[in-house]
Amino acid sequence: MTSRKIALIAISLAVVGPAAAQSDPKLPYWASISVDEARMRKGPSPDVPVIWEYRRKDLPVKVVARHENWRKIEDPDGTQGWMAARLLSRTRTAIVTGEIRPMREQPDPAAPVAYRAEPGVVGRITECSAGWCRFDVKGRRGWIQTDHIWGN
Rank of each mutant, 00 (worst) to 15 (best):
D24W: 07
G78S: 05
I125L: 04
P60G: 10
R39D: 11
G17H: 08
E105D: 15
R55D: 09
Y115C: 15
L27T: 06
I144S: 06
Y54G: 12
A38G: 12
I100N: 11
V122C: 14
Q106V: 12
T2P: 02
G81T: 03
V35F: 10
R56P: 08
M103W: 03
R90H: 11
H67W: 13
T79K: 00
T79P: 04
V137A: 03
V16A: 14
S34F: 04
D36N: 12
G131M: 02
T97E: 12
G142V: 05
T126K: 05
Y29H: 03
R141E: 05
R140T: 08
I51F: 01
V121E: 13
G98I: 12
V61R: 03
G151T: 10
V61Y: 00
I125F: 06
M83E: 14
W143M: 11
M1W: 00
W52K: 10
V64S: 03
S45L: 02
V137M: 02
A20P: 05
A20G: 05
I11E: 07
F135L: 08
P112D: 09
A38E: 10
V50S: 06
T93R: 02
I95P: 02
E105C: 11
I51A: 06
R71K: 04
H148W: 15
S45W: 03
A117H: 15
I51D: 08
R124D: 01
S3E: 09
T91W: 02
P18N: 05
R92V: 09
H148E: 11
E74D: 12
A31T: 10
I73R: 00
D77Q: 14
P107R: 03
I6Q: 14
G17W: 02
V63W: 00
V96P: 14
D147T: 07
D136H: 03
A94C: 00
G139V: 04
N69P: 12
P25E: 03
E105G: 15
R140K: 01
E37I: 12
D147S: 15
N152R: 06
W70R: 02
I144W: 03
A85G: 14
G139Q: 05
R134D: 04
M103V: 08
I144M: 08
C133S: 00
R39F: 12
Y29L: 06
